[in-house]
Structures are given as structure tokens and as C-alpha cells.
Amino acid sequence: MSDGCCRTASRDQSGRAWVNEAVRLVEADANRSADTHLHVFGLPAAWGIDLYLKDESVHPTGSLKHRLARSLFLYALCNGWIHEGSTIVEASSGSTAVSEAYFARLLGLPFVAVMPASTSPEKIALIEFQGGRCHLVADAGSIYAEAARLAAETGGHYLDQFTYAERATDWRGNNNIAESIFDQLSAERHPVPTWLVVGAGTGGTSATLGRFVRYQQYPTKVCVVDPENSAFFEGWVNEDPSHVTGVGSRIEGIGRPRVEPSFQASVVDAMISVPDAASIAAMRWTSRTTGRSVGASTGTAMWGALRLVSEMRSAGETGSVVTLLCDGGERYADTYYDDGWLAEQGLDIGPYTATLERFYETGAWVEPTSAR
């Protein structure tokens, strides 16, 4: 029972100086990293449609995930979840872990990436190069629980990209990717794009784009492209956020065996399910056409973007379409760019390559008659 006296309580603030310096370091990294380029993809001018690729491969860690990692660290620091000496843990075997390892090293913090034991040595090497440690587990489905366990065991912090990606980035602006795209389009003939086309790994990027265009009252629509075996497409179509496939995606960086918590289906206007062979055909074709080596997630996005361009042409519409060059193709020399690997996977990219070449030459989009 209260005795009527005023009561006060406080917490030790000795760690605030370290947090302030950590935030400064992360922000300084952003200031040193100039905004990424928005490249024009050369469609025939007579079509009245412009296609752009936002080149996220030029970030210090080479992919779109650099933005996510920066946002996750700032979010955790400003929420008081990361302290001096905290062990940082993530469930990731890909580009997110590479970027998070970079920021952990920037702050002098240990970083552990929890990943399936089947993860390729090349991926492990990229994470270790940035100063991270890889913790392998036999069951791929257990990476989330194992990451949470390790964080609790070490008194550290589990970044949990699949939960926090949609909220760690300020979707109203603050130099997020959506604001950057619209700023860079401001002097173009179609400055407000008809479509923004992205894949979904965590769902954070599509959430940021979808919220931003609504906040700014733009008519722009967001299309999410989804590779084989991923749960996002069926989950969106059937309005089932619990949908799972239980199978991993072959297209690194996008696609998930479950609909992740960060995926905000309500701000997505359309989805396109893309066969893996189409993703890889578009990846190789885009690299040849632009002279820029791109990864397979960019191929997935380009397949979807060009299909939308063809639909706009058929409807007599003009406008612009923007998609992302998520990372460079140099990471995939032994997989997507290797014909032997394609044969082992049973993937025939020929029909999809023919579709792309015919479209570029004639403007006619003809779906492949066979798909594998």
C-alpha cells in the first residue's frame, strides 16, 4: 500500500555515451556511401515507357541488404537493445548476414550468423571476411529458434530481420529507398512511376515502398515478384499469412518457405510468380544487354518488370517502371552463370531467353510453351 510519498526510479545511463557513438558511426557510414545510381534500361523511345534499375550493388557490402542492416542496427540501438560488447546474432546465410557482419565490426561487436549446414563455403567466406562467425545447424527450419537461443545465452541481441525489417526503416522518408527513387526520377519524362517491382525476402522493401507511395499520395503501384517454392505468392493470393511451402528458394535473397512477419500483403498491388529458369534467363540476358553483371534476384525482378511493360504497351499506356539491381553477378559464377549447375538443377532457360529476345526486338511478349 502506498504511503502517499512521491516515488522515483532511474536506470544506469553510463552506456548512453557508447550508444551515441555507435549511432554516429552508423550514420557516418551512410554519409560516406553516396546514394546508389538509377540506371536507364534502353527500351525503344517510341514505346513511351521508361524502365529503370536502381543499382544497390554499389553499397559497401555489395547488395540491397546493406540498407536493411543499417536500419536494423539503428533500430536496435535506438530501442536500447544493443550495448557495448553485445553479441549480435542473425538467422541468415546470405547478403543480410554479410552486411550485418560489416556493421557489427564497425561497432566493435561480435557477430554470429546462424545458417543451415548446407550453406555453401562461398557464402560462409563472405560473412567471415566481414568479421562474422557462422553457426551451422542441421535443420534449416530451426535457425530462428537457434538464433534466439544464442542471443539469450550470450546476453546479446537477435536482430531478427524477418520480424523487424518492415518497421526498422522509416517508410515516410529519411532517405529510404523509396524517397531516393522518387528524387532521382524528378527530372524524367515520367517522374511518378506506374510500377515499382521488387522481390520479397523479408518483405521489408515492399512494405517501405507500398507505405511510402500511399503516404505521398502517389498513384504508383507495387508489384512483388516471387520465385519457385516461395510462400509469398500463394499466401498473398489466398490472404493466408500462415502459408508455408517447407521448401527453400533457389533464387538467393528472395523467396521464403513461409510468409515472413515483415511481409505486409495489404500494401502490395500485384504479384507475379516467376519460374526459376525465367529468373536465371533474365539475369543472364540483363547482364548481356546492360553490360552490368547482375544476380538472379535481379533477373526475377526484370522478368516481372518487362511483363508489366508489355501489359502497358498492350493497353496503350505510357509511363515508367522501376526495379532493383539487388547485387552483382560475381557472387554466382559457380551457380547461376554455370551451365553445368543449370543442368544439375534440371533448368532449361532457352524458352525464357527466347521470350526476352523476341520482346526486345518486336515488343511482343510470348510466354514460353514449356517450363521446367
Score class of each variant (00 low, 15 high):
17 A>T: 14
327 D>N: 09
143 I>S: 03
125 A>Q: 12
165 A>M: 03
285 W>P: 02
40 V>F: 11
171 W>D: 03
331 R>N: 14
196 L>V: 05
17 A>M: 12
176 N>R: 06
307 R>P: 05
259 V>L: 14
240 D>F: 15
24 R>T: 10
345 Q>C: 08
178 A>R: 03
235 G>N: 03
135 H>D: 15
79 N>S: 15
34 A>G: 13
280 I>W: 01
328 G>V: 08
225 V>L: 01
103 F>C: 06
164 Y>N: 06
344 E>C: 05
45 A>E: 06
235 G>I: 02
51 L>C: 06
324 L>Y: 14
196 L>A: 04
193 P>G: 07
120 S>T: 13
351 P>A: 15
55 D>R: 03
25 L>D: 08
326 C>M: 15
282 A>V: 07
9 A>H: 06
45 A>M: 00
216 Q>M: 09
63 S>L: 05
136 L>A: 12
3 D>Y: 15
285 W>E: 05
45 A>V: 04
369 T>C: 11
64 L>S: 12
44 P>M: 05
304 G>Q: 09
317 E>R: 07
355 T>D: 06
215 Y>H: 11
115 M>R: 03
59 H>K: 11
1 M>G: 10
306 L>Q: 00
30 A>K: 12
57 S>E: 11
246 G>R: 14
118 S>E: 10
234 E>H: 12
317 E>N: 07
283 M>R: 07
128 E>M: 10
256 R>I: 04
238 N>P: 02
21 E>W: 13
371 A>G: 15
249 S>E: 02
317 E>F: 06
296 A>S: 10
139 D>E: 08
347 L>S: 02
222 V>K: 00
